[in-house]
Design a protein around this nucleic acid. Structure first.
Length: 249
DNA sequence: TTGATTGTTACCGG
DNA sequence: TCCGGTAACAATCA
């Protein structure tokens, strides 16, 4: 719905506004996602690159639009609606060369049909870093966040601390396929749902998950182990996801 | 009012 | 080079 929108700058003091002014009044021709990065392509070149981070929000309003609330960095305006982008981690204008650089450093996106999973597997196979770190590294493969990391590895019975180099191709393929499956559900339902057959919760903040934030494994009733990877909470069931002895690898 | 948090990046040191 | 740790930033809710 944003395609064909003109853009206007709405918060002149905002720290991103100087760059966004370059797009003022121009027509947005396409919106694309590369992993968690949003790219709004504009007529005549240039793109608005947005990453919402932990807290960013995109809100749509009918015209006449209200005054921007909070840290609105950019407002996209069409004749019938406006879209405010609040609190993004990244909000910048890229020229065509910079956009190519961005796309190049983002790993294959599990939701994109043109993604090449072998690029991700090559990185994983070459690394001693834990698989829980690697699948959330957006330069290795793009799209997985902290909750999906925990949930996908639990579903595939892979311990998050398993070194990447010890993950075989079959296991990787199952991880990739499950990620694509779960993220597609997330897009469709607009909620993180990793329990097969679960419905979106009425409450926005209660995800339908198996072990993330939980104490007991739904499969074996064992206690869920809690630890930290990359300063982010991580969870695993020691019984369902045994950490293989990899000494000598 | 405070703290935690679905994320990324830059920087530093081993 | 690779890896692990820290800090800064931001909005929202319990």
């Amino acid at each position: 719905m944003l395609s064909g929108s003109a853009i206007e700058v709405s918060s002149p003091q905002g720290r991103f506004s100087a760059g966004a002014a370059r797009l003022d009044g121009r027509i947005c021709r396409a919106v694309e996602a590369y992993g968690k990065h949003l790219v709004y392509r504009f007529e005549g070149g240039d793109a608005l690159h947005v990453h919402l981070g932990l807290f960013g929000r995109i809100r749509k309003h009918k015209v006449p639009a209200r005054e921007p609330r909070g840290a609105v960095r950019v407002r996209l305006a069409s004749p019938s609606h406006v879209v405010d982008i609040n609190g993004p981690t990244i909000c910048e204008v890229l020229d065509d060369a910079e956009l190519l650089g961005l796309i190049d450093r983002i790993g294959p996106d599990v939701l994109r049909g043109d993604a090449d999973p072998s690029r991700a597997f090559d990185r994983i196979k070459a690394s001693r870093a834990p698989i829980g770190r690697l699948i959330m590294d957006q330069s290795v493969m793009a799209g997985i966040g902290n909750i999906y990391r925990t949930e996908i590895l639990w579903r595939q019975r892979v311990h998050p601390l398993t070194p990447g180099r010890t993950v075989d191709i079959d296991t990787f393929n199952w991880i990739w396929r499950d990620a694509a499956h779960l993220l597609a559900i997330g897009v469709k339902r607009n909620a993180i749902i990793t329990v097969d057959g679960a419905a979106p919760s009425r409450s926005r903040y209660r995800e339908r998950v198996n072990i993330f934030g939980k104490d007991v494994c739904p499969a074996c009733s064992g206690e869920i182990a809690r630890f930290v990877i990359d300063n982010r909470r991580a969870f695993a069931c020691p019984r369902c996801q045994p950490l293989q002895d990899v000494a000598g690898c």
